[in-house]
């Protein structure tokens, strides 16, 4: 148990869980991104500040993302499409979950790889068929995990990571979204 080193500070997370049970206000976080239109369908997004544990905070450094469309959409392809960012979020969130749960359960990981595929009928966004939705029809995540654990234990890691995943929840359950002009 003590020799497991997945690099996740589980004790800190468990301590935080106990502390936040008593002060739910501190558990309220606000995550932010700001975007700036470049040209065509190319947008630059920056992420740095957020709010949490009762005060304004910031990442160590700013992250900058480019979003565009591929050339088959007659665009310049300066970056990945917005809907691909959802896959980025899902894969990273589930992987972080696998590592945390493994650490907590004393399972040593050697490698964790995932491929994420979202099936998307673009007739929806093009308005070509009103019965087709805009978003993904479905998403499939396939994990390849090498760890000191049985297949059942690995499946349980993956199940538990979905159970506690923010992005999995955000994608599988509806969220109230407000969009307004400032």
């Amino acid at each position: 148990m003590t020799t497991v080193t997945n690099g996740v500070n589980v004790q800190a997370l468990l301590d935080a869980r106990e502390a936040l049970k008593k002060s739910p206000e501190a558990a309220q976080f606000v995550w932010r991104a700001s975007s700036k239109w470049q040209n065509g369908v190319h947008t630059t997004i920056t992420v740095k500040d957020f709010y949490g544990l009762g005060e304004e905070r910031a990442h160590k450094s700013e992250s900058v993302f480019q979003a565009d469309h591929p050339e088959v959409f007659a665009a310049d392809d300066n970056g990945i499409t917005p809907i691909e960012y959802l896959l980025v979020g899902l894969a990273s969130c589930l992987t972080a979950g696998v590592a945390s749960v493994a650490q907590n359960r004393g399972i040593q990981l050697r490698s964790v790889e995932a491929t994420v595929e979202g099936r998307h009928d673009i007739r929806g966004i093009l308005g070509a068929d009103p019965d087709v939705r805009n978003g993904y029809n479905d998403i499939k995540v396939t994990f390849n995990i090498d760890a000191d654990a049985s297949r059942e234990e690995i499946e349980a890691l993956v199940a538990q990571s979905q159970k506690r995943s923010a992005v999995f929840d955000a994608l599988t359950n509806p969220t109230d979204v407000t969009v307004e002009v400032a």
């Binding site: 199940a159 979905q162 359950n173």
Partner: peptide, 25 residues
């Protein structure tokens, strides 16, 4: 899982398969 009512429709979670996996495991 029933997650919300919106515009007169019931919206259900897309996480059903994981509910099955958790219970089977």
């Amino acid at each position: 899982r029933w997650a919300a009512v919106r515009d007169g429709s019931a919206l259900f979670s897309g996480g059903l398969r994981n509910m099955f996996s958790l219970a089977d495991l």
